[in-house]
Design a binder for these strands. Structure first.
Lengths: 242, 242
DNA sequence: GGTTTCTGTTGACGCGGATCAATTCCTGCG
DNA sequence: CGCAGGAATTGATCCGCGTCAACAGAAACC
């Protein structure tokens, strides 16, 4: 991979910024920085996740998608800051795509360095396992959503997730910029894009949601939204920026 | 937890048996046995996964289900021998149920002992991460199945999975005993049980499948089954007993 | 062995959401 | 500023699969 001067400069700024972040938030991870290469990703930038590498999301959003480019595509997982991404097994690697859905900072480590860091430090090991466990819980909840919820309930769940990760409370209502396009949300929820559009319009008509631009959303009534989604409590518990 | 004499006896036999297994298959895990308590589980035995414990499946099958008992239940994950199960986050724990779907041997460790074992041994750490990564890949494939496949394709995928884990090849065809009931399969595939029954009958009528009893299945034509399922290659790659 | 109860099968029917097509709305670009 | 191309909306239509109900078969219990 070649690195331009501009990219190198961005990496530098990213590195200093995230170091401060780490010191206050996750001291365990700070011990990984020594072996990590910091990368800054543009919006919609596809990422080549090489075998035997581990990525750690520092800011932004990374989407993991599965399937051929075209109609039958699925957004399998959405990664938020703090998430740990290991290269998929070889048998799946060819069908997986990773994309940064927003400007993101990530650390990249070799699997060896990552393993060594875990083996050498009990607190790092404990932190990593706990984090992976949280990600597993989110993925399981995702399955539960797809399996048990109607399309409207799924959309409500997604809005709660986005609000939890990206939202800023503003006197009872929560605003955020949705980083996923309509098509991408549909791929995440296993929904037809047209159906999704209808449901969003319905939410706006009902007054639980407002759109100031195509990507700027405001949840006007969180409780009404929660009432639309059976497992809202679990969704909000697992998807809060904290 | 009280342990009867009979249970203690079973634990003893289980322990010696699995130790031999470990020595030949997964030397990394053998180093965990010292801190593990071996348990034998009956078919359909529910498991209480206490906070801060880690379970390792040695034989049999453990199902993780989510949702209230009753209609809207989802089988979120199926664990096979070698799998590592960490207690779910508190916010999800109340809605999760773990059940042994077949006679199973499992190891139980405290999270502390597990973390310590990883931190003390680089090979254990590497093994655990690789295993967790395989489980993540399976879960992602599960999502992809639910999102992208029709009900018939999903059933085909499940049969390929079961054949891979439990099947014994027998001259071109593969036989196995299905540990899940019709209802449970339906919960795993996010399918109506009646619809599942229809699809199974269709497979039998087409000749790709044969039933010698309620639970004894034989896939008569693996290739025909693979033709029914778009991502059959990935399914078989990730679900093979090896 | 016979009754009860649980599990699976099959048909008829209806609904939720996918599909297709037409239109409108953004956004970038000359 | 106006045009072009893509993204989102919305209506009309269709079909896969869920739902309900009636029945059949297996296991369980006395």
């Amino acid at each position: 991979m070649t690195i331009t001067v501009a990219q190198a400069a961005m990496r530098q700024t990213a590195k200093t910024a995230t170091l401060a972040l780490v010191a206050s938030e996750t001291p365990e991870l700070a011990r990984l920085t020594a072996h990590a290469q910091t990368l800054r990703l543009r919006r919609r930038q596809p990422i080549a996740i090489a075998p035997d590498t581990v990525w750690i999301v520092r800011s932004g959003i990374i989407a993991a998608e599965h399937g051929a480019t075209g109609s039958e595509r699925t957004m399998v997982e959405v990664h938020y800051p703090g998430d740990i991404i290991a290269a998929p097994p070889a048998s799946l690697a060819a069908m997986m795509t990773y994309t940064s859905m927003a400007p993101s900072d990530v650390w990249r480590l070799t699997a060896n360095a990552f393993n060594a860091a875990m083996a050498g430090d009990a607190e790092v090991a404990s932190y990593v396992l706990q984090r992976l466990n949280l990600q597993r819980a989110r993925t399981q909840l995702h399955i539960s959503m797809l399996a048990a919820l109607s399309s409207e309930q799924r959309v409500a769940a997604l809005l709660l997730q986005a609000a939890g990760h990206l939202g800023t409370a503003h006197g009872g209502s929560v605003s955020f910029e949705m980083p996923l396009s309509r098509t991408e949300v549909a791929e995440y929820l296993a929904l037809n894009a047209d159906t999704l559009s209808r449901i969003m319009s319905r939410f706006v008509r009902e007054g639980v949601l407002a759109r100031s631009s195509r990507t700027q959303l405001t949840v006007r009534d969180i409780d009404a939204l929660k009432a639309h989604c059976p497992m809202s409590d679990a969704v909000m518990a697992l998807h809060s920026a904290r």
